[in-house]
Write a protein that binds this DNA or RNA. Structure first.
Length: 824
DNA sequence: AGCACGCCGACT
DNA sequence: GTCGGCGTGCTC
């Protein structure tokens, strides 16, 4: 009796409700090569449609299930995820209500993604005649057979295109079942492995030199190549030719003589980090040294630990990171550094490459897919032991992980807004727990959650209170915008800010104005009736994009021409909005002839343009820079002595429990920016609510007071860290159906919450309420918010309800998903 | 989510 | 016969 081998596979075609390991037979020809963590193509469902999957485990099974289907193709030569990675994917499913495959996909670089093509051709032994005969009277079958015969094979996409709205599925299935056609599924990958030719010595160096030296005069190139190659062992053919002046012919003749071998090697497309001098040793002040010693002691234990490094702006957290990584590398362990937005931290990148050179791999979203893939491979191959990157870099395939650092851990960009909706901080914590690595959360304004954990003793707390170089904090002034309104000034620049700007202009010093508002862009409004163009598919106003001169929707990407006149009343449109553009215009009017630079998502499209913009600001000493969020980040300019917050309240009154935290953090960071050079700086905060504690605490850079107040509110409101918010969202094209689904969901949730074990949970259920943007892409969205303890049992309940809702035929046409502590 | 299957009515 | 439409049920 022959033993059969079966594999448990997570499938990409499985939805959340039916996601589980599916068992497939491993065909004999794959038994030697297939192992867990490799991707495969398998047939799925009654139609046996081809789908991608990832092998979770392989086992011998004595009695195979008769309905067990075989794996069709092995897609990877070696595992793309190791055991740790597979466990992480399974953990993510439980934690973030996504499928295992969704999680696995998020962990891999896009360069590794496959796309599948289904192609039909005539089965062996079937000719044209036989095929037509088999098609018989069926018009569908005839059409398909014609297509296949015309060019030998037909791609499913082509067939679908020809069929238009009609469905070729049943006819195709029948032709395949009757043995007329065969289906071949191929996988193609966007980014291939880039290879390069490498020349390797084929004989001992002495023998090689002995052969070429006698003919040194007549064949100088052969000699030169061998001389170089003997010195360095191996080199790419390109480099060899470049340095010796030899041609490929020379190398081929050397190969013919048996002196060298030419091999294809993978070439890594290195991300260009501007070359820099290797950095000298890092010097720490007492406070830094104490924090470093404490953290390193934790790292040395090799048991998982988490620490919060709370250091005011300019206290030198980066030097501590570098020392920790150095020590980690000495112990043979790798390190992972996460930053909120890599483009805004060029200095940090520089520091790292200066200290670690080629050991650093950089992973972030603005890399081209190929570059990202290469950096990923360098990490996986152990060629890079330090990875620095944004959110998704938390999955970097580093082995022997000793340290994960999350810089600016309070940043919202660590939370993914797409499926899987993971938080990099949680994933980092999990990876550290699994590998015994140390997690370091660094921040000048820690998230309330992290500080709470630190105060509870869950995280070790290290505090840096001294600014590096002992620079004084800027003078901070709060300006009341209500006074401006009373005085009839409806503009965004009050008189205090105006005179501060004037003074700076006079002194030839630079100023930065900060607008704490997301997507602050221009809108159109009709001068007659006030009508503003809205998106036809979403419930938002369209915004004007200067880059293409069109109105665009930020939700769905819809774009349209700017209408000549108001379609409603025939009036003329004009631009409105308190965006950066408006502020820029106001400033230009206020200070004629003074250049004002603007930096926001509208001006930044090309990959490196913010760097260029900032470089211009610094080098050409442009007097004023206006920008959003991004000007608040790690910028360090000598000549900037004034920082203005245009309207501090803008980010405060938002329906989100993090609004206060975010506002505090932004203002604190911005204020910390002023006067980082020799000159003392000042900061001016304009606000409509000067008495608001968040603003006064931020102005005073008083985190502790802010924390004490905010933690009380969080407890009162049942927000993190005391409870988590599970947000269940239903969406669909029929508003009433979406609302009905939400109500049913609410009723069944209430039912469960009345019974043990859930009746013991302190929880609160809100909704259904329309989502912040009620309609996106013609889909209405309603949501329920459950504030409760986030433990395994509660997640199991949410998962159960999601599955039921997705299977319930009453919810037809409505999709339901869950997110924990979503951003909006 | 797909997709088949089964059933009905319509078209020819 | 052949096809569209629609409800139902399953996916190794």
């Amino acid at each position: 009796m022959e033993q059969s081998v079966a594999a448990r596979v997570a499938l990409s075609a499985a939805t959340y409700a039916i996601d589980k390991p599916y068992t497939y037979l491993v065909p004999p020809e794959l038994r030697e090569t297939l192992s867990p963590g490799m991707r495969v193509i398998v047939p799925f469902g009654a139609g046996n449609r081809r789908t991608e999957g990832i092998v979770l485990s392989i086992e011998e099974s004595a009695a195979p299930d008769p309905k067990c289907k075989p794996i069709l193709t092995q897609l990877d030569e070696e595992p793309v995820l190791d055991g740790e990675g597979l466990h992480l994917a399974i953990w993510m499913r439980e934690r973030y209500f996504c499928t295992v495959y969704d999680a696995a996909r998020a962990m891999l670089p896009a360069g590794l993604y496959f796309s599948l093509q289904d192609r039909y051709r005539l089965a062996p032994g079937i000719d044209r005649e036989a095929a037509y005969e088999a098609a018989g009277n069926s018009e569908y079958a005839r059409t398909i057979v014609e297509m296949v015969c015309a060019s030998g094979s037909a791609e499913l996409g082509q067939i679908r295109a020809v069929f238009g709205t009609r469905n070729p599925g049943p006819a195709l299935k029948q032709l395949v079942d009757r043995g007329i056609l065969v289906l071949e599924t191929s996988a193609s990958r966007g980014v291939g492995d880039k290879t390069e030719r490498v020349a390797v010595l084929a004989v001992p160096p002495e023998d090689a030199m002995a052969q070429v030296t006698p003919r040194r005069r007549s064949a100088p190139m052969r000699y030169a190549v061998m001389e170089l190659l003997c010195a360095i062992g191996e080199a790419s053919t390109k480099e060899l030719c470049y340095f010796t002046g030899a041609s490929m012919e020379t190398l081929k003749s050397l190969r013919k003589s048996g002196l060298i071998r030419l091999e294809e090697r993978e070439a890594f497309r290195r991300v260009s980090v501007e070359p820099c001098e290797p950095a000298g040793p890092v010097y720490l002040n007492e406070e830094q040294e104490a924090a470093f010693q404490g953290l390193d002691a934790l790292a040395r234990t090799g048991t998982a630990a988490a620490a919060l490094l709370y250091g005011v702006t300019g206290s030198g957290k980066t030097q501590i990171y570098i020392r920790l990584i150095q020590e980690s590398l000495k112990r043979g362990k790798s390190a992972l550094v996460l930053v909120p937005e890599i483009a805004l931290t060029p200095q940090l990148l520089h520091h790292f490459s200066a200290h670690f050179g080629d050991a650093v791999a950089v992973l972030h979203s603005s890399l081209r897919a190929g570059e990202r893939y290469d950096e990923w491979k360098r990490a996986k191959a152990g060629k890079a032991q330090v990875v620095i990157g944004t959110r998704s870099a938390v999955f970097a395939p580093l082995r022997n992980l000793g340290l994960i650092i999350l810089d600016e851990e309070q940043e919202g960009s660590y939370k993914s807004e797409q499926v899987p909706k993971y938080h990099a901080r949680d994933v980092a914590k999990y990876r550290c727990a699994q590998t015994g690595a140390l997690l370091v959360l660094g921040s000048a304004t820690p998230s309330i959650e992290s500080m709470y954990q630190a105060k509870q003793g869950v995280y070790h707390l290290f505090t840096l209170r001294r600014r590096y170089n002992e620079r004084a904090l800027p003078q901070v002034q709060i300006a009341d915008l209500r006074e401006e309104l009373k005085a009839g000034n409806g503009g965004s620049i009050g008189h205090a800010l105006r005179s501060a700007l004037e003074e700076n202009l006079r002194r030839g010093e630079q100023s930065i104005l900060f607008l704490n508002r997301r997507g602050a862009s221009r809108m159109l409004s009709c001068g007659e009736c006030g009508e503003a163009p809205t998106c036809p598919r979403c419930s938002v106003y369209l915004t004007y994009h200067s880059a293409n001169g069109r109105l665009m929707c930020h939700c769905c990407g819809h774009s349209e021409r700017v209408p000549d006149v108001c379609p409603n009343c025939g009036g003329t449109f004009h631009f409105i909005g308190t965006g950066t553009q408006r502020v820029q215009e106001e400033l230009e009017e206020m200070f004629p002839g003074v250049e004002v630079l603007r930096m926001d998502t509208d001006t930044i499209s090309a990959v490196h343009s913010h760097e260029k913009l900032l470089a211009r600001f610094e080098q050409e000493r442009v007097p004023i820079l206006v920008g959003t969020q991004m000007v608040a980040k790690g910028l360090d300019f000598e000549n900037v002595t004034l920082v203005g917050v245009v309207a501090a309240d803008l980010s405060l009154y938002v329906d989100d429990y993090r609004a206060a935290e975010r506002t505090f953090s932004l203002i604190t960071q911005v204020v910390g920016r002023a006067g980082r050079g020799e000159k003392t700086g000042r900061a001016l905060i304009q606000t409509y609510t000067p008495e608001n504690d968040v603003i006064t605490f931020a102005a005073a850079q008083n985190y502790d007071a802010f924390y004490e107040q905010e933690i009380g509110l969080r407890e009162l409101r049942g927000c993190p860290p005391f409870r988590d918010l599970f947000v269940l969202t239903a969406s669909g094209t029929t508003e009433s159906a979406v609302l009905q689904t939400c109500m049913r969901l609410r009723r069944s949730l209430e039912e469960w919450l009345r019974q043990p074990p859930y009746e013991g949970y302190r929880s609160q259920l809100l909704g259904p309420a329309p989502a912040a943007i009620a309609k996106v892409n013609n889909r209405y969205r309603y949501r329920l918010t459950l504030s409760t303890r986030n433990d395994k049992r509660m997640r199991a309940l949410v998962a159960h309800l999601l599955c039921c809702a997705q299977k319930d035929k009453e919810n037809r046409g409505v999709s339901v998903y869950a997110d924990v502590n979503p951003l909006d």
